[in-house]
């Protein structure tokens, strides 16, 4: 009888309460850490994306200069030049914000627009191989170097974005990450990777 019905004395209840609070603390501390980790890794993704956008901006900025230089020397490339200008316009129109990074369709559309510009630029450079005075033009050569450098930087910033996304997504997929995401009302979503397209696999080389 005495054993079955345990009467709660005050000190006993207090120590039980202390135990529960302690347990909660122990459980929630790593939870908070995990939350902070998610925030941190999401932030890094954002930073990498900004780096990537800065490199895209370099590419946009090069286009008018390139068009001007080519216009002077290559009279027959009017159509190619128009295409480049159009591709630039449509590439600058799409901007990704907020939830767009978790939307595969929006990422794909963005990527397609950027690759359209890249493709038209490389076609322009290939076409220009036929104009000897253009090839000898120092400012054209410098622009070509700048463009090659920019393409390489874009490639690297895409890779670094993907690296950051990988870190973030895998943190989110961990049990701790999932639990914390549910507990806080699912503020975190998986980010979409850049996919390697056929075009980006081929090195941005100018010569045939």
């Amino acid at each position: 009888m005495n054993h079955a019905t345990t009467t709660w004395s005050l000190p006993r209840a207090l120590s039980f309460l202390l135990f529960v609070v302690g347990l909660l603390g122990v459980v929630s501390l790593p939870g908070c850490q995990s939350y902070d980790q998610l925030i941190e890794k999401d932030e890094l993704c954002g930073q990498r994306w900004a780096d990537y956008e800065a490199q895209l901006q370099r590419r946009y900025d090069l286009v008018p200069n390139l068009v001007n230089v080519v216009k002077g020397s290559a009279k027959h490339e009017a159509e190619t030049l128009t295409k480049v200008t159009e591709a630039r316009a449509s590439a600058t129109q799409i901007k990704l914000t907020g939830d767009d990074f978790t939307d595969p369709a929006k990422m794909a559309a963005f990527q397609k627009a950027q690759e359209g510009l890249k493709g038209s630029l490389s076609r322009l450079l290939v076409a220009n191989e036929q104009y000897p005075d253009l090839k000898a033009n120092q400012s054209f050569r410098d622009l070509q170097v700048q463009l090659e450098g920019t393409e390489n930087r874009i490639l690297r910033s895409r890779e670094q974005y993907n690296e950051a996304v990988k870190q973030y997504n895998s943190e989110l997929k961990k049990i701790k990450g999932q639990a914390i995401n549910k507990a806080t009302g699912k503020p975190f979503k998986e980010r979409v990777y850049f996919t390697a397209s056929a075009e980006s696999q081929a090195a941005p080389k100018v010569s045939f």
Partner: peptide, 8 residues
């Protein structure tokens, strides 16, 4: 860190 800058 490196970001692909430079020339070849």
């Amino acid at each position: 860190d490196f970001g692909g800058g430079g020339a070849s």
